[in-house]
Computed example of a mutant assay.
Amino acid sequence: MKKLVLLFAPLTFLLSACVAPMSGTTTGTTTTTNSTAQQLGITAIKIAANAKCNTELNKLPAWQTATRLMTAQQKQSVQTNICGCVSEKAPTSVTAVDLAAAAIDPAARTIIVNNAVNRTINACINEALQ
């Protein structure tokens, strides 16, 4: 699974580089422009956060205790929900500068992802287990 993520992440970046940046969109009086670097950064953060979440979740003693009575399918379903939540929330917990750095620098991406996952995983676990 991790090898697939490592294989698809660079491929996603290469294919995304061919896409023209989105032009500004106007919402009321606010104009929002997403640069290609930010889009790549968001994609990178989401992919890496999902992989990191799966790894970190399995290390948590509370997760191991909470899933002890679950079937493998139930555990996988809850884990998918939690890590999906983390990968969606992770980009919102980093700055635009961090997103641009994540698109370009793998070392920065690792640090940014670790921080983003640590900030969002507990909230997502609480949402999924309620």
Rank of each mutant, 00 (worst) to 15 (best):
S77A: 14
I111Y: 03
N122G: 14
T29E: 15
K46F: 00
L40M: 14
C85F: 03
T120R: 04
A72H: 10
L15A: 15
A66C: 05
S35F: 05
A72E: 14
V117I: 00
N34D: 10
L15H: 14
A49K: 00
T29P: 14
N81L: 09
N115L: 01
T55R: 06
A107L: 12
T27V: 15
Q130W: 03
I45Y: 01
L129W: 12
V86Q: 04
L60P: 01
V97Q: 08
N115P: 01
N58E: 12
A37M: 07
V78S: 10
V113W: 01
K59S: 12
L4I: 15
I104R: 13
G28L: 11
A51Q: 03
K46I: 02
A102I: 03
A107M: 06
T33M: 08
Q39A: 14
A108T: 11
N54E: 04
T33E: 09
Q38D: 11
A128Y: 12
C124A: 09
L7N: 12
A49G: 02
R119A: 09
T32D: 07
P10C: 07
A103E: 04
V113E: 04
L40E: 08
W63C: 03
A102K: 04
Q64F: 08
N81H: 10
T25P: 12
G84K: 06
